[in-house]
Design a protein around this nucleic acid. Sequence first.
DNA 1: GCACCTCGAGTTCC
DNA 2: CTCGAGGTGC
Length: 717
Amino acid sequence: MPHTADLFGEAEAPGTGPSSAPMPTHAAAADTPAARAASLRAQIAAHDHAYYVLDAPTVPDAEYDRLFRDLQALEAAHPALATTDSPTRRVAGRPLEGFAPVAHRVAMLSIRTETDTTAEGARAFDARVRRELKRPESDPPVVYAAELKFDGLAINLRYEDGVLVQAATRGDGETGEDVTQNVRTIRAIPLRLATDAPPPVLEVRGEVYLRRDDFEALNEAARARGDKTFVNPRNAAAGSIRQLDPAIAAQRPLSFFAYGLGETQGWATPATHSGVLDALRALGLPVCHERALGTVDDLIGFHADIAARRDSLPFDIDGVVYKVDSLAVQAQLGFVTREPRWAVAHKYPPQEMLTTVEAIEVQVGRTGKLTPVARLAPVFVGGVTVTNATLHNASEIERKDVRVGDTVIVRRAGDVIPEVVGVLADRRPPGAMPFAMPHACPVCGSLAVREEGEVDNRCSGGLICAAQRKQALLHFAQRRAMDIDGLGDKIVEQLVDGGIVRTLPDLYRLGLLKLAELERMAEKSAANLLQSIDASRRTTLPRFLFGLGIRHVGEATAKDLARHFGSLDALMNASVEDLLAVEQVGPVVAESVHTFFAQPQQREVVEQLRACGVEWPEGEGAAAAAGTAPLAGKTFVLTGALPTLSRDQAQALIEARGGKVAGSVSKKTHWVVVGSDAGSKLDKARELGIATLDEAELLALMHGKAATSESPQFPPD
DNA sequence: GCACCTCGAGTTCC
DNA sequence: CTCGAGGTGC
């Protein structure tokens, strides 16, 4: 095993200098303390640059820390060496009394936010610019730069003779706050510009932000300590910068992107905005890679591209910014009041919005679980209007301390389910009471108890409870169970509330007359519903078992039970020991099944369903074919949409040949069947090196041919 | 006893 | 889709 230093030291190309880790032999070259300090600083700066600007860490964290501690020790021994631009200054300093005001020499203006963020909006911006420049359509197109609008905190960094001397917030644009001590702790921000000939004055503007993963880690640590968590990366970043104690700010993993200039003196400013960003990057400042340069069509392309990838970026953004690239043309365009004419922001629909909690209601699920749900004042977030958000359970409400009347932050990213991320404590109306889970079921009034060691409260009413009856009916009717088309929640609601249906067998005693009483139930749809109820009588044992809604018995377990026992009677009369003999059935499931069939009213339901004509083929017949099945013992996972087969059809085909379809990819998966728009399962398959098939290859495989490649001769089936 | 693999259950909006 | 928990294999 080579010494680790070799791995990092020798792997570097010669000449990269400080990015190579020091080897013991190198230390001998630095014979004076001053030279050693300079060497350590150069190495640390190079690692910071590689990590934050190039996005490519050159050494492990432990090695970085060692360099850092060496420098600290050296400076402690020789105080004269502790210069203001030393990386060790990042964590030093006393808590501030407050923040001193800083007058911006060049105002920090905001960019006009366009309401029309479509392609036409971008073209309108281009048309405005041309009109202002008196440039007709026939002239060459205006060149624009597009970049991201980061969701963080705008900061002005002032470098004098290449050294960071001051950092200030935007404030009102004219005057901000001096946050130099805290900004010094941000490793992404160089304390000294990477140039031998620094300009006398260079002010760099950009955004301090938190990466999503750093934000999660920060909150995770806060939770572990029992501290308050931040609601989003932006608040965490802003809160960290406004920390009075720089030692605390230093604990926060803040990042930075440069996007513009303030005052400059004696700097050879490039002619274009894109040139400025490249130059800043060359000076060692982090500049975001997500940029575009071109005509208005390129802006539109950039907008669409980023919109599609927004959720997978490592940090939050709230839109994109379009700027005229030429600084000369920018100067020509000038400002309207306080907004530049040469730039616009196109924001995406916000993923977080404020709204108020109008009520907290409690829903009852099929298993009796009580779920608190926040009824919200309607709010448009993430592209849809949200009115409900689940609060999951009592401990979740307690943790977030959500109360009726509270102003809350609601988040909905991409197609993710909306959630209440946090409460604005200072906007709580006086007298708002903490929410308490009811001790009685809100639907049937039965006792609602919280079982030992569980987080959920459950209604004990069973089928007495109308809510549980409704859910039981919907479960029974769902596609994967009895597949009764047309029996949705609206109909079930009326059937149960009207006392027309109480139990599962009642469904099979429905007639046209009864259905006609219901609202929104014309003759045609009533007939259709009766037709599908009738069709559902012919079913299979696994579907029937799943439909009964026995706790812990889902689709997969229902199949296992059906295969093992072969008939319903055998299963109903099985002891706990018999049940434990079934593959994938342990004590909890065995107990649940046994208890279910021990109840006389459940046996009665089963008997009545049979009497109503519900039937399925029984016997060993189904199991007998297993030995010869071509796919016996093979596990498949389906992902994405297949060209001709539906998911259910593909599953049925695989199972008919003895194969098994699982929900997630693991080492035990034999094949992953990939369709279009495949999701994370395909990534997982690649990671684990699992073979993949497309639909044609799957069909070929099932017809007994080797799945080497697409075999064109397979029969169409 | 622990780690990993599965399955069950719950959830929102169009 | 994700979380939590049951089941199994090491």
